[in-house]
Design a protein around this nucleic acid. Structure first.
Lengths: 233, 233
DNA sequence: GGGAGAATTTGCGCTGGCGCAAACTCGGGG
DNA sequence: CCCCGAGTTTGCGCCAGCGCAAATTCTCCC
């Protein structure tokens, strides 16, 4: 296989603060793969063999319950590290990672983690900062699910998606990967029916426009208002 | 102040695998404090100055929403490390830590984290493993809140408390710190009223006995059954 | 030992959002 | 270009669990 080009990663925040030759070196032990839409990068509960950086595309991280219900843990965007079980001393993946669109991914064998973290402290520190962010986000999600109504949770989820992965178009901010009502339901702990009703209502009042597997936020401000109002208690 | 005795920590899993002189050395930079019941060890959103190990007692970690609602993120038991913002590159605490009973705590200044993690790799690795466990637990909680009914969530919470901090008595497994209906509600995303009704029902059928700020699990098996049955979908 | 405040219990009415079912629409493959 | 199936919309009935309120019981402090 051909050597990977440093330009793949030099622009990513994760590798900022590393010298060019360090970037090249880290790449030397990486393997690059393409994953077609809907294919699985790794599966929940299976032996964790590698950790990953997403070079292009979007990835859905999904937890499945014993009885088959799915919950979307998060979406991974370009430049993010994921599948970092190794860095946290786990031996299996706690969730599955599925390509939401065609993706390009770099992978390193887990066995290399200790060495890489030691040789490139910035890389290790950035990874742990990412883990910290995710822990905090996940806790925020617990708080939201404990204290907010469904309408606010869905509004929050859309705002987060628009901010993190939104693409500006002439008509608003469009979430730039296919996302179904069912997906939004699995992010917010509700049903696709309720999501559909909410989106219909919001579309009617001009806050969003949406189509099949597509949502565009037209009036983020009013969505913020919705996400904050009418708290329980 | 007097030097801390190595016996404080030598029995804790967090410090296993460290040589006695290493344990002594790590203790040399620690400060020991007592916290009375209901006092605050650190407060959400404030500058993170230290990380901690709980030597004795129980600590409640609480997230408060902008409008004042509280959610219990987790309980810390003896021997656990907590307030590890430093290890995750954060500068403020994402939650408050409050003594559920009188506590003894060791604290290290955050500035020492990088050095300690470098000098004592086992210590760093154990900490990151703990963080990994918490991330996974928190995600499990999201899944539960998304897919389970209140009754199952409360059953799960009681089982977890009984396993993690339970004390065997002649009548069952007693949660060995004061915990109110309100606390359980804040752990499970419901109201103290609903928790009270559930506990009354379970007491009537002999699954638990409970009193003011006290719960004893008598029949864990039936509680497991309750925690698994009647899932949505 | 008594009083006050905190924690708990319980009743009652209401409603947000789910479950079910059916119709509809869009987009891509043949 | 048409058809098929996945994705979406919408109606309807129902009920788990919340909000409110009041009564009751501990427990700790004076």
């Amino acid at each position: 296989m051909a050597a990977l080009d440093r330009s793949l990663i030099s622009r990513l925040p994760l590798f900022q603060g590393m010298a060019p030759e360090e970037q090249s070196e880290i790449l030397r032990s990486a393997r690059s793969s393409r994953y077609a839409k809907d294919s699985t990068i790794f599966e929940q509960e299976t032996e964790a063999h590698s950790f990953f950086v997403l070079i292009a595309g979007h990835i859905r991280v999904v937890r499945t319950t014993p009885d088959g219900q799915q919950v979307i843990a998060r979406y991974i965007s370009e430049g993010e590290i994921f599948g970092v079980a190794a860095a946290l001393g786990r031996t299996t993946y706690p969730a599955s990672a599925i390509a939401a669109v065609d993706c390009v991914v770099l992978a390193w064998p887990n066995a290399l983690w200790p060495e890489l973290a030691r040789r490139f402290p910035v890389f290790g520190a950035t990874t742990y900062r990412t883990v910290g962010n995710r822990l905090q986000e996940t806790q925020t999600r617990v708080v939201e699910m404990s204290t907010e109504q469904v309408e606010q949770r869905v509004a929050h989820a859309l705002l987060r998606l628009a901010n993190q992965t939104g693409r500006k178009t002439e008509s608003g901010v469009e979430i730039d990967f296919p996302i179904s009502r069912q997906d939004i339901a699995e992010m917010t702990g509700t049903t696709l029916h309720t999501v559909s009703r909410l989106l219909s209502k919001w579309e009617e009042s001009g806050i969003i426009v949406s189509g099949r597997q597509k949502v565009t936020v037209k009036d983020a401000h009013r969505l913020v208002v919705l996400s904050e109002s009418r708290t329980k208690g």
